[in-house]
Design a protein around this nucleic acid. Sequence first.
DNA 1: CGTCCTGCTTGGATCGATCAAGGAGCGAAG
DNA 2: CTTCGCTCCTTGATCGATCCAAGCAGGACG
Lengths: 343, 343
Amino acid sequence: MARHLNRVTGTPPTLADVAELAGVSRQTVSNALNNPSLLRHDTLARVQSAVDELGYSPNRAARNLRTRASHLIGLRFPPAQEGTANALMDRFVHSLVETSKEAGYHVLLFAGDGGDPLAGYDDLVRSTAVDAFVVTDTYLGNPQTAWLEERGAPFVAFGRPWDNGDATHPWVDVDGSVGGRMATDHLLDRGHTRIAWIGWRKDSFIGEDRRSGWAGALHDRGLSTKGLASRVEDTLSSGREAAAVLLDEAQPSAFVCASDTLAMGVYRTLADRGLEAGRDIAVVGFDDSQVAQVVHPSLTSVRQPLEQVAVEVVAALSGLLNHPPVAHPRTMLAPTLVVRQSS
Amino acid sequence: MARHLNRVTGTPPTLADVAELAGVSRQTVSNALNNPSLLRHDTLARVQSAVDELGYSPNRAARNLRTRASHLIGLRFPPAQEGTANALMDRFVHSLVETSKEAGYHVLLFAGDGGDPLAGYDDLVRSTAVDAFVVTDTYLGNPQTAWLEERGAPFVAFGRPWDNGDATHPWVDVDGSVGGRMATDHLLDRGHTRIAWIGWRKDSFIGEDRRSGWAGALHDRGLSTKGLASRVEDTLSSGREAAAVLLDEAQPSAFVCASDTLAMGVYRTLADRGLEAGRDIAVVGFDDSQVAQVVHPSLTSVRQPLEQVAVEVVAALSGLLNHPPVAHPRTMLAPTLVVRQSS
DNA sequence: CGTCCTGCTTGGATCGATCAAGGAGCGAAG
DNA sequence: CTTCGCTCCTTGATCGATCCAAGCAGGACG
């Protein structure tokens, strides 16, 4: 295949080259690409074939300069947290890339050093390197969103503005409460009545959200939650200890956990006592991580519709960038329950 | 904080604005940013403070257009393969983003539909959207690398050009053979003499590479590999079946697996027979996935130095982009063995 | 006094696309 | 026959930074 370089200058073909070959002006070529309806059919065809012949593709930098847009979406790749939910991020990013592509955007990753959550954003905003951001780490306070709003930088958040009811920016989130309820209802339907909760510390908005689903499901059936809940760090050993205490003091027949990691802690405690998940005690996790599928017995888990989240995020972004005056959408999606052996 | 917009036009400050505020010419501001050594200390300081006051950051599009560089590195985010080593990718991408940042680059993600591995590359090359690529999926034949070389597009591969000895492009890879050897030596040192291998099908270059380390280690101690190897698909059930057959026919006391997934399959078979990894039979996996850490008993696994790979990749890219005529580096890194309960 | 050197200015062109006007050409209407 | 209007296309300016070529002021040096 030809390398499609201008024979004289050795550089990629430009719009002017196409225009010359097609025997039209630059502007006509530009219109052929951006407003084909303005051209007569035969000229359009002529330009098209010139484009094909030269293998022309508009120079991004030039277009960006003139249109004041980069067609890039900035995404801060959160600091790696070995052992927790980064596979989650992977699924989301993947879908985001795919969906953005359909909307004509690419995803630009940038790093933020752990300390300052604003690091990285500032530079990209000022150098007009991206058109908008996707903000994912809104879980505990969110200086980014306030800062971005103040700057007038377009963005969509994956995650509710938990601590700021007046926030007006668009966001997409998954209803953790519904997830907790689905898990609990599932266990109730199987006949369990003493269902314990192992979740995160009280200052975790997400943890409390998920927990509320568990509590709500129990209350709806007239069951008490008293003594059946534990709130700990999101680690294997914390889950293990919490499970041991709960088994001793409350004799639950099932556990719902705020994460698969905690659920794996429960597995350990069960193993310590010669019990097995699914056979002796039911266990449900959260996030449907890879571990849930591979472990034995495989773990029932609440799965977030991350692919759908990405789709909604991009939809919101497109709205934001194309028609500024539309209302800012807030989208809440429901998770699903993936039932496996552990329940 | 001020929004740093020009009061008259409402647009971000330009180089001309800075020049006016500092009382110097545009050229001098440009020099202050790109060739500070040309300026006297006091003028440099004056320009700097004007830059700070306005919150100026050079417009990326304009700079890109003029310098014919985007300071972006393209990375194709490989199709999601639920259940396998995508967490691996996560670690790599993360380090790549961090390291690129230090070198003054950002990472642009793009999608390739599963079918055509070239999809996405072409468009980015022609529109000069990225300065270079990082190619990661070279495991089985690699049309991308040949295609990119032909186009003269700069890139660095993570992965050797297995099927093409004459390839001259720079690459970085991890020595799977060393990994297999480390795992096997570790088991030999613990007194095991019948060590089985469960790997991938023979047409997997990576699988054969890893396997060669296992075979080499055994041969070096005068031990035979006969009847101790199995080559299957990279799935849990394949590993499970392979382990069952091997246990029956070869009575190994230890397993080395080409992936953690296969190792989990071994765990299943052990559980089926009332055996436990680490206590009755030793097991070593590959890739040090999240599962290896969480499962019980925790799994000894060969860990790839992905952070270091990213550093080397970026180093090679910098060399490529700054001093074209240097020799193309080929860097081979050694993995490490993370010893846990299963051995 | 003339020359070199440092440090900065001036004016312009340039990268490659798009934007905003400004024509040709042609049919219909006056 | 002119004039308007419409379609289709062209021309020149523009986005903001960088590159280039001169040139100029002032100090050091012979």
